[in-house]
């Protein structure tokens, strides 16, 4: 739809403003996999409370907005095997790579770091190749 890109741009500006605030006020990089991963593998427990506050708000705020605006649909696959394997790949992959779409993508590219740019190119390429195979070559999704 024509309006999708406007919502995308506005939402993107909100995401970037959140990252800018976290950087300039708290002095931290807003990367979802790093913030959560540091809690899970204990490497970030020294500032764990800050991470918990971030993650809690990340869950609650969109939940409340969706509730008030009549719900939202993620169109997530109902195939639990697919979802489980995807989650495992995302969990291991983002931690091996040291970042995901927010950390390497938003925060890395905006800082013009070579690692952020390369990671983003690689995960988009890998994703596009697999999705094209699954959808157009094998007709699985």
């Amino acid at each position: 739809m024509l309006t999708d890109w406007i919502y995308g741009l506005v939402g993107g500006l909100m995401i970037g403003s959140a990252g800018a605030m976290y950087l300039l006020i708290n002095g931290r990089i807003m990367g979802a996999s790093g913030i959560l991963g540091g809690l899970i593998d204990r490497s970030g427990w020294s500032n764990g409370a800050e991470r918990v506050a971030f993650v809690a708000a990340l869950i609650v705020v969109p939940g409340v907005i969706a509730l008030l605006s009549g719900g939202s649909d993620a169109h997530l696959s109902g195939n639990l095997w697919v979802v489980a394997i995807a989650g495992l790949l995302v969990g291991v992959g983002t931690r091996l790579a040291g970042g995901c779409t927010s950390g390497h993508g938003v925060c890395g590219i905006s800082r013009l770091t070579w690692r952020g740019i390369m990671a983003t190119v690689i995960y988009i390429l890998a994703g596009a190749v697999l999705l094209s195979l699954l959808r157009h070559a094998w007709g699985l999704i």
Binding site: A86, L88, V92, G93, L96, A97, G98, T101, I122, L134
Partner: peptide
Amino acid sequence: LILGSTLFGMGWALAGLCPGPAL
């Protein structure tokens, strides 16, 4: 970085979710 981003991209394609939106 190379292996991790490749695995992440594959998982991202499979479900359409990355860590931020998943939460």
